[in-house]
């Protein structure tokens, strides 16, 4: 009884001293704190942060928008008219579409990088920028398209014109085809009118 009591007392005091020794040692361990804005941790090589789109290389294939699990990429395209084709990517790939709208709502983005892999021209990429807070949430919708609204209108008009022409051509072609078909039909008819004569001939035999 009394032995336990003394032992408890001793252990109580002794363990406190052991603990104090540990904290005393830590008092002189260099701190692990980084003074953030001045000092920064080095980012891992493939860190995933803010997206960047090199719009000059974008062919508007919408692969990225389709892949995005949170639907935060919003792309609209207009087909290029032959008179006004969008040119080539830096790797020489022909573009067929004008990208009239390319918005990424970076506030919704979950940095999964799923949009990066499917891109055929490697123009959507992750950068190492991670400080982009904004006072207004709308400022986090990044617009990458580089066409002005007027230009978009022009492209739209061009396409409409081209399509109208094409339509007209098509109608013409259809007409021509129809005429040709009609002609052929008539000829066929004429032929077939002559043909039964064989049977008649047979019967006559």
């Amino acid at each position: 009884m009394i032995k336990d009591y003394l032992k408890n007392t001793w252990e109580g005091l002794y363990t406190v001293l052991v603990g104090m020794k540990i904290t005393w040692k830590h008092l002189f361990v260099p701190s692990v704190t980084l003074q953030y804005p001045e000092e920064r941790a080095k980012l891992p090589e493939r860190a995933r942060n803010r997206l960047f789109v090199n719009i000059n290389d974008c062919i508007g294939c919408m692969q990225c928008a389709t892949a995005c699990p949170v639907n935060c990429i919003d792309i609209e395209t207009v087909k290029g008219a032959p008179v006004d084709m969008p040119g080539e990517t830096s790797k020489g790939k022909k573009k067929a579409l004008w990208v009239t709208k390319f918005e990424i709502d970076i506030a919704k983005c979950c940095f999964c990088q799923l949009c990066v892999f499917p891109c055929p021209t490697e123009c959507i990429q992750m950068t190492d920028v991670y400080e982009y807070s904004e006072w207004d949430r709308d400022n986090l919708i990044y617009n990458y398209a580089n066409l002005t609204p007027q230009e978009v209108d022009i492209k739209q008009l061009n396409l409409e014109k081209f399509q109208a022409e094409k339509e007209a051509k098509k109608i013409e072609a259809a007409k021509a085809k129809a005429e040709a078909a009609a002609k052929k039909a008539e000829e066929d008819k004429a032929k077939s009118e002559e043909k039964p004569s064989d049977d008649e001939k047979k019967e006559e035999k």
Binding site: T23, H26, L27, F28, V29, P30, S31, V32, T33
Partner: peptide
């Protein structure tokens, strides 16, 4: 300060 340095902070 004491608490911070004992926990390896600044």
């Amino acid at each position: 300060k004491v608490s911070a340095h004992m926990q390896d902070r600044l």
